[in-house]
């Protein structure tokens, strides 16, 4: 009996985590991260907080991108947590060519890198740009839209932790309604961030008819790697919006990052899907639906919705309706045939 077939005969499923150990699945289906030849694009020793979703997401995304590009990768970084916690010497973490210019220009800088590579006869070198939600949905939005519109050969990765965490947890246009931030305090008649504001960058990206748009989550790392790998093999402008919980900004335990990220998806608040040329082509089905309330309750940024004896049922219901609308819109329970 070979080692390979011995592995196949084990029928073990790690219940409760939705995670199949890499040793238990076919080699080809194992994660990039589990491979000995992973690139370690971001090495350990950086200064990210315990439980940082962004550090995890970036590590998986870039190692997958490195494998897809066969090591021929340049990363451009917007100002933000990722830039700050990975660069000050001697905590420099980048094992790949890496450029940081400004907060709001990463997509344009990446366009320039890609153009130069083409002209220098180095088309095999692929370009990834990355930023947080502030750098992407707010201050970098003009440059991002320009990069999309020109269909420049850049994969843009947005690590969305729903606020300006690097500067001390202020509201961004990706902050959800009712969330408490330093600039949307939990005070007054409408505590936290107000309803009816914010923008949905994946949908805006789709409106540019770019070849590939996807959402991903650090709770689904295989899926994240798959989407990055797929995107890396498509020419033109591509966008992946990755949910990365922030224990500091969200007020969650540092060991709960994956759990919280999973509930964002399972509640329907953060739908996982792919779109090509402006059309949704696939959505990840929710395996065990959870009420939005279960997602909100462990997070201190929503604590004002759960005061003892006066739970804010109105606002919780309104957030539930947002999740329900996503479930319907993206067919997250698989009740229709497609997507």
């Amino acid at each position: 009996m070979t080692e390979e077939t011995a592995l196949q005969r084990v029928k073990f499923y790690q219940t409760g985590t939705h995670t199949v150990g890499n040793r238990l699945i076919d080699k080809g289906a194992r994660s990039v991260q589990s491979s000995m030849d992973r690139s370690n694009a971001i090495t350990s020793g950086h200064r990210a907080c315990q439980g940082c979703g962004e550090a995890l997401g970036a590590r998986y995304a870039l190692d997958a991108a490195m494998r897809a590009a066969e090591g021929q990768l340049v990363a451009v970084n917007a100002t933000g947590c990722l830039e700050v916690f990975t660069t000050p010497y001697p905590e420099t973490s980048w094992q790949i060519p890496w450029l940081h210019s400004l907060f709001g220009n990463a997509p344009a800088v990446a366009t320039g890198v890609a153009a130069a590579m083409r002209r220098k006869g180095r088309s095999e070198v692929k370009v990834v740009a990355q930023g947080g939600d502030g750098g992407t949905t707010d201050i970098g939005f003009g440059c991002l839209s320009g990069m999309f519109e020109r269909n420049d050969d850049v994969l843009y990765l947005c690590y969305d932790n729903e606020g300006y965490m690097n500067t001390g947890v202020q509201r961004s246009s990706a902050t959800p309604p009712t969330a408490r931030t330093a600039t949307t305090p939990a005070l007054g008649d409408a505590p936290g961030n107000v309803f009816g504001t914010g923008k949905n960058l994946p949908l805006i990206a789709m409106a540019h008819n770019i070849p590939y748009v996807a959402t991903a989550s650090v709770a689904y790392l295989h899926d994240l790697e798959d989407k990055v790998t797929k995107a890396m093999h498509i020419p033109g402008a591509r966008y992946i919006h990755i949910m990365v919980p922030c224990p500091l900004g969200w007020g969650t335990a540092s060991d709960a990052t994956i759990h919280i990220a999973r509930m964002a998806v399972e509640s329907g608040l953060f739908p996982l899907f792919e779109a090509e040329h402006g059309e949704v082509t696939r959505s990840n089905k929710i395996r065990r639906r959870v009420p939005v309330k279960d997602y909100l309750a462990p997070q201190r940024r929503f604590a004002h919705l759960f005061k003892k004896g006066q739970e804010d049922t109105t606002r919780i219901a309104r957030l539930q309706r947002m999740a329900d609308a996503n479930i319907e819109r993206f067919n997250l329970l698989g009740e229709r045939e497609s997507p």
């Binding site: 210019s101 220009n105 890198v113 440059c143």
Partner: peptide
């Protein structure tokens, strides 16, 4: 020949594209 002419969306983007291109070794 051998020149990328990029129409951008603002002056901020114009110089930002130039920054990326120059850092990648192109005369910009």
């Amino acid at each position: 020949e051998n020149c990328e002419f990029i129409n951008v969306e603002s002056e901020f983007a114009a110089l930002s594209v130039a920054i990326g291109a120059s850092a990648a070794g192109a005369r910009t």
